[in-house]
Structure formats: structure tokens, C-alpha cells
């Protein structure tokens, strides 16, 4: 039987009916057409599907959609502040060469956001640890780590 739930994604409300076994990843990609969130493994090992739920990073491939009823979800499509093209994290990824094939990028950016929201001035080791659940096969991570450090400097401190 389908469950009636409401997802709050990037500030928008989506009342939907979902089968209880469907993952947040499937619902985002297939029902809401938010395909910026990727699917790389389905077993919680690659981080390509990372989204934020109430500010915490989770693997959307391991999260059931029904459990997300009423929760605030942020995907890569909701990263840039309204009216702006890019979030400082995205700017830094673009300018620092942190993107090659780009398949890991949305997940990386959300893991970075999770880190920077709780730790605005992370050390290199803290950055590496924060993205250690996100695999990247292209970049060797260095430019991603540099981009996250750079983004920390670009982000306005929260009041």
C-alpha cells in the first residue's frame, strides 16, 4: 500500500504517495525529477547520492522515502542561495578544478556543506575526513580538498 507523505525539498513542498520500500534516492530522481542527486552503488559506499536531511548528510540510497515525511531535505539543486547562480562551495569547485567527470560532485558538495555549517574553518585533515565517505575516481581528491578549504573562506560567517 502506498503511503501519503510530504517531502520538503529545497524549500518546496511535494505531497506524494510512495511505496514503503522506495528509497529517497529513487523518489528524488524518478518522481521529483531532481536528478542532480546521483546513484553510484546503492549500498552506502560511494556517497554519490548524498543529500542533507535537516542539515545532516545522509546517503539517499539507504534512506526510505516514507521516513522523510515532513523533513527538510537539501539536494544539489537547492544549494545556491535564491537569486544566485552558485553557492560559494560550487564556485570554489568550478574555479579550483575540483570537477572532472562530475559524477561525485553533487555528493561532495553536500558533504562539504555539512562540514562547513558546523565547522567554518576546518583543517585539511578535517576536510579529508568529512568527504571520506564520498568516492571520486577522477581527481585524486586534492583539488576537491582545496576547493572546500577555499569555500570556507568564501562563505559568510553565520550570525
Amino acid at each position: 500500500m502506498k503511503h501519503e507523505i510530504t517531502l520538503h525539498v529545497n524549500g518546496d513542498e511535494y505531497p506524494i504517495a510512495v511505496d514503503p520500500w522506495r528509497t529517497l534516492n529513487e523518489v528524488l530522481r524518478e518522481d521529483l525529477n531532481l536528478t542532480g542527486t546521483k546513484f553510484g552503488c546503492g549500498s552506502g559506499d560511494c556517497g554519490a547520492c548524498t543529500v542533507l536531511v535537516e542539515g545532516r548528510s545522509v546517503n539517499s540510497c539507504l534512506t526510505l522515502a516514507v521516513e522523510m515525511d515532513g523533513r527538510e531535505i537539501t539536494t544539489v539543486e537547492g544549494l545556491a542561495p535564491s537569486g544566485e547562480r552558485l553557492h560559494p562551495i560550487q564556485e570554489a569547485f568550478v574555479e579550483r578544478g575540483a570537477i572532472q567527470c562530475g559524477f561525485c560532485t553533487p555528493g561532495m558538495e553536500l558533504s562539504a556543506l555539512h562540514l562547513l555549517e558546523k565547522n567554518p574553518k576546518p583543517t585539511e585533515a578535517e576536510i579529508r575526513s568529512a568527504i571520506s565517505g564520498n568516492l571520486c575516481r577522477c581527481t585524486g581528491y586534492n583539488k576537491i580538498v582545496e576547493a572546500v578549504a577555499d569555500a570556507a573562506g568564501r562563505m559568510k560567517p553565520k550570525k
Binding site: 552558485l86 560550487q90 570537477i99
Partner: peptide
């Protein structure tokens, strides 16, 4: 910077 970097950074 790559010409597709913005598209990839935004999930587009």
C-alpha cells in the same frame, strides 16, 4: 575552468 563545470556543480 572546464566549460561544463557549472552544469556539473549545480546538478544540471
Amino acid at each position: 575552468p572546464r566549460n561544463d563545470a557549472v552544469a556539473k556543480a549545480t546538478g544540471a
